[in-house]
Design a protein around this nucleic acid. Structure first.
Length: 283
DNA sequence: CACTCATGTACAC
DNA sequence: TGTACCTGAGTGG
């Protein structure tokens, strides 16, 4: 379930629960057993999130690099015996709590130099206040790739996943297939700012909400919360349903192997978008 | 119970 | 562009 906001929440929870404590580290599944043995009984110093990368730092310059991929899960809760140890890649625990990692794309032990490489390879993350989108803008100006595809490039927009890209394109009325070089500078600036707003909100509440209250169907009076991502969105996985703004059906297609959803009326072919997203989520 | 699909990425052709 | 990888929730029979 991971876009960047999930990773940032996990980093904060990890730090809150385990920072500066001696922790038990194990790999019941066995695939991370050697590294776990090395870390077991050492001090966890803190967690850091960058894009979709989660870095767990331990004493003696040891870092566990986790990327959840599409299906990985990391759950932190009260200490209990594991329910299915055959899939439990990594457990970090203290006397009262345990964090259980299953199905990650990567889980590797890094040296400080490798840790620095991972950080350097990642693009600017809208969730980091110091992130500089200038290099991203320069790349877009030279690219004829569809803006929808560029938004998933982690060297350009770290932490943005399929939901955030679809929603930010809708909110700005941008044609998903518009070449990056055709995106006006002011629209790009607004897209970046909107990503920061939407992702920060998602970190705070734990779900992706992108729909302005004014656009929710009046009869509902509240978010529908009818999809697995837990929030209320304009286009993601709403193919065939009525657009909240114009009432026409949301469209779906596949682009570079990923599901793409958009409103053909609000985001017509060639549309370069607006500088003021029609809707902002509630505070 | 079998099957599909997923908020992701890397690699082979 | 297709496919492999890792797991589990949802769906349909």
């Amino acid at each position: 379930m991971p876009e960047g906001h999930v990773i940032h929440r996990l980093a904060a929870a990890f730090t809150d629960t385990f920072a500066d404590q001696t922790v038990a580290v194990s790999s019941p599944q066995g695939r991370f057993a050697a590294a776990a043995a090395l870390l077991d009984g050492s001090v966890f110093t803190g967690a850091e999130a960058l894009g979709k990368h989660l870095l767990l730092d331990f004493a003696a310059d040891r870092t566990v690099w986790i990327h959840l991929g599409l299906i990985g899960k990391l759950r932190l809760g009260p200490l209990q015996p594991p329910t299915s140890p055959e899939t439990l890649r990594l457990r970090v625990a203290n006397a009262t709590h345990a964090a259980d990692l299953r199905g990650p794309q990567w889980c590797r032990l890094l040296t400080p130099a490798e840790r620095a490489d991972v950080m350097a390879a990642c693009g600017p993350d809208p969730l980091r206040p110091a992130a500089d989108p200038t290099p991203t803008w320069q790349r877009l100006q030279r690219s004829s790739q569809p803006v929808a595809q560029l938004l998933l490039d982690q060297r350009l927009f770290a932490g943005v996943g399929n939901i955030f890209r679809i929603e930010v394109l809708f909110r700005h009325g941008i044609d998903p297939l518009l070449p990056g070089k055709h995106l006006p500078a002011a629209v790009f600036a607004s897209v970046w700012a909107d990503l920061t707003t939407l992702m920060t909100h998602a970190v705070r509440v734990g779900s992706i909400d992108t729909v302005a209250p004014a656009h929710l169907p009046a009869a509902m009076g509240r978010p529908q919360r009818d999809d697995a991502h837990g929030g209320e969105v304009y286009a993601y996985r709403r193919a065939g349903q009525a657009c909240y703004v114009c009432g026409n059906p949301i469209a779906r297609d596949t682009l570079a192997g990923r599901n793409l959803f958009w409103c053909p009326t609000c985001q017509p072919p060639g549309s370069r978008g607006t500088t003021s997203p029609a809707a902002w989520p509630t505070a």
